[in-house]
Nucleic acid binder design. Sequence first.
DNA 1: GATGAATGAGCATTCATTCAT
DNA 2: GATGAATGAATGCTCATTCAT
Lengths: 191, 191, 191, 191
Amino acid sequence: MDKPEKILVTALKLFVTYGFHGTPTSKIASEAGVSNGTLFHYFKTKDELVVALYTSIKEELNQFLVTQINTASTIKEKFSRLFVGSVEWALSNGDAFYFIQQFRFSPHLNLISEEESRRQSEIHTQLLLEAWTANLLKPLPVNLIATLIASQISGIHQYLVDKTVSPDEQRKLIDDVFELTWATVANPETR
Amino acid sequence: MDKPEKILVTALKLFVTYGFHGTPTSKIASEAGVSNGTLFHYFKTKDELVVALYTSIKEELNQFLVTQINTASTIKEKFSRLFVGSVEWALSNGDAFYFIQQFRFSPHLNLISEEESRRQSEIHTQLLLEAWTANLLKPLPVNLIATLIASQISGIHQYLVDKTVSPDEQRKLIDDVFELTWATVANPETR
Amino acid sequence: MDKPEKILVTALKLFVTYGFHGTPTSKIASEAGVSNGTLFHYFKTKDELVVALYTSIKEELNQFLVTQINTASTIKEKFSRLFVGSVEWALSNGDAFYFIQQFRFSPHLNLISEEESRRQSEIHTQLLLEAWTANLLKPLPVNLIATLIASQISGIHQYLVDKTVSPDEQRKLIDDVFELTWATVANPETR
Amino acid sequence: MDKPEKILVTALKLFVTYGFHGTPTSKIASEAGVSNGTLFHYFKTKDELVVALYTSIKEELNQFLVTQINTASTIKEKFSRLFVGSVEWALSNGDAFYFIQQFRFSPHLNLISEEESRRQSEIHTQLLLEAWTANLLKPLPVNLIATLIASQISGIHQYLVDKTVSPDEQRKLIDDVFELTWATVANPETR
DNA sequence: GATGAATGAGCATTCATTCAT
DNA sequence: GATGAATGAATGCTCATTCAT
């Protein structure tokens, strides 16, 4: 792992525990095993580090989701993969997922450009467009459907984080909730 | 409005715009029209101010929801009132709602005691218990149901914040989503 | 002496010895017997402190020169008082005088507004105008005359700083150089 | 232009604009088109670079003045050439001249050895000695005369920098001021 | 000679908190 | 209760300098 990567990994761990403000750059540097100066060699400011971390996490998540979707044939199956994949990724990358929320409710969000923002949600946009074109969705605003699905993902994730459930049960619950969600948003006629 | 109240109101506005860290107590004080010392007269530390703000907002929200629920007769109607009320309160108290999220994804959350936490969600717990007892819910874990409903509330709110919709349409959308949500979690047999 | 004044006095001493850069604000504060925070309470930035010091020194010098000029009756005598007064002030306020030069050949000079600059040289401007109106000066550009006089002041000062001369001799030398300078710039006809 | 020379040229430009402190070595290096390490290959420390720049400028100035003086036959003419040459060099090497002042009022001055200092003013010392021996000067301390001449040089330069004057007028003004200065310091009997 | 990544000491500045009035 | 001057610990960031390649 090269130095900037090591810095990002360490920053994630510390930000999640102590918050942005509660984490001095000096602590990030020393725990990452580099000097303070090196941190600023790679990230011009602390804010830039925070943003870079967010971007890299989103990137990683997206790449994971793409591999998930690619294993599916039907559109519904793609949704399922996206849904299940998101929840499972969130469960096994607790820190990263928590950080995303943290970031979203902070002034740092404004530092993300429109374009970067669009790029990050491209997969979801594409898939929804596909479903919409195939007339698979209820006659509701597409954005509303997107938001409702996203909410259910974060809902079931939230539930599973608090409980301790066996992997099998967990998988079943996620599938069940996906089916419920799909029933909520899918067009009953073409379903 | 007395001084501590003025301080809380000002703090909310600033926290939402600049974040906790980005808002010095001195700025809160000056914008609230009180002296630096006065702020610390009412709130021993900045953290205490943050927590007090959170608690007071939750308190206000809960009181509002209680009045909403009280106008309902059936259990489903209570759920509806809770659902719609939550979304509408969130829409007309954007700052407060945003602050709640901000707070939840920050280390400050640890400063809320278990008991306080329980008290804040009492209404929801009560209502779910009622529904459960009346056998109105699907055979899913009650907590999962609670989380799913909460997610949908925040989902529809999220959607409405971004769009600009007429009040009538807005109301209709919220009702629609509630019906979808209710269909998702309610026991079809006793519904 | 109040705190901001004490800070200025200490800063002068240190700047002259170690330069602006070579003098940390922390050293100024501690030698002035105040806390680091107090320094920044009175001067928002280090640059502001530097500028404030410059302005206060120029102010003091000007007030001194005004009292000198006021004891003179003829215009030539006023020039003499200004000349002699400037040299003597420079000799007994070595640090302050050195600081002025230091400041003038630094980027800080740009932080002085046009207006402030004009105000600082008002005495000289006035006196030259008076002499010009009375036709006492050679037909040379007034600004050139001003600059030449100023140069001679700094010349004789420079000389006296390096040598050690008895007060009497010193006074005589300054007078001599003034007469030479006056002969250089004064109109021989009306002299 | 070889690398160390390029570094010196760039450093001059930047020092004059931003001051010593305001100019990082990294900026000098990058603007000079060399790497950070190369700068330190040629100049062990930043201070050494500053001193080297000063020395090289003084050297250049002196060489120029020597060629000027060599075209003169009488002593007064030599003084004239020195005077005029100095002003003209200062005018066409504004940055270099400004840097000299900057350097003189900075702690770096202490890094110049006595001997180096003497060498730099040798021309002036020699010429004054010649004039003194020939009994051409007023019965004033030689050092005072030296200082007064130097002051007038910097005075007329100062004036010409601020104004915009045609080359012819400029040359005439410089000559005039030289004559005035010469009249001030030269022995009227042997003149 | 040339490079530029890495270092870490050093500094300006901020800000929560105190306390005398 | 109210004030705001004073504090000083804490921190982001800079930059001269080193050194392995």
